[in-house]
Amino acid sequence: MSAILIVALKELQDALRNRWIISITVIFVLFAMGLAYFGTAASGQTGFSPLSTMMVSLASLAIFIIPLIALLLAYDSIIGEEELGTLLLLLTYPLGRWQLLIGKFSGQVISLGIATLLGFSLAGVLILGLAEDITASELIPAFALFIFSAIALGAVFIAIALLISCFVNEKSKAAGFSLFVWFLFVLIFDLALLGLLVATEGGVGAHFFPYLLLCNPTDIFRLLNISGFEASQVQAGLLSVASPELLSTKILVSSLLLWIITPLSIAIWLFERKNV
């Protein structure tokens, strides 16, 4: 068995052992169902909302919790083992440092992937069974894209968390940095962009501006998930500046992949040079 696989399986075993996967799955089901049913409560009615509205609110929710969960899962991967003392031991074993890192990454992505797939598939099935005017043919592609991009978004933040875990020298610092990253991408970035847009009265070239959205993985995720729905343009807010022609699905998916590969590569580079 390759070293990467062994480490990945150990991560998966950990996630199962501390009931991490099951609790995240349950959280996902509850949130998705809640949003689907109460999503229109603001306008005075309850009941299942149209699929487009549902997907937009699901995407907004995912942007908040998936990065948080991913960061939480991975922030102590390396520094945790370093503080425990097992890292010292592992480094004397026949396995490369990059293998350890990639193994951890894969195991954590698989764990989060299982929870995401299970949670949202279950929610999708429940919605199909309960809501009358939503058909399988429209729900399945939307949910498939949502689940796939949610896992990718999780992978981005797992990669970032691993990077953090490689350069800090204390677990508590890793937690601090992770929280900062979460605030940055989930809250601050869009606000800053909005501020920029208002301050320059739209003066930042309309051609250039949409590309700024690619600097935030959560915006890429949102763009991917709402682009298919005309009705959602109203709720898209800031994102409406990015027209689908400018940012094709291909560009969005490759930027998301780049957002996984880059932090992971830097993490490997740092870890190879780290003194333990």
Partner: peptide, 30 residues
């Protein structure tokens, strides 16, 4: 490294795994 055995001072292991699971993990890696 396959021909090496090391016992660090103040050794600690994964608290949530059983002794056997810990040893199995290291055995697979080695």
């Amino acid at each position: 490294s396959q021909q090496l055995g090391y016992l660090p001072e103040n050794v600690h292991f994964y608290e949530n795994l059983t002794g056997k699971e810990v040893l199995r993990y290291f055995a697979r890696l080695k």
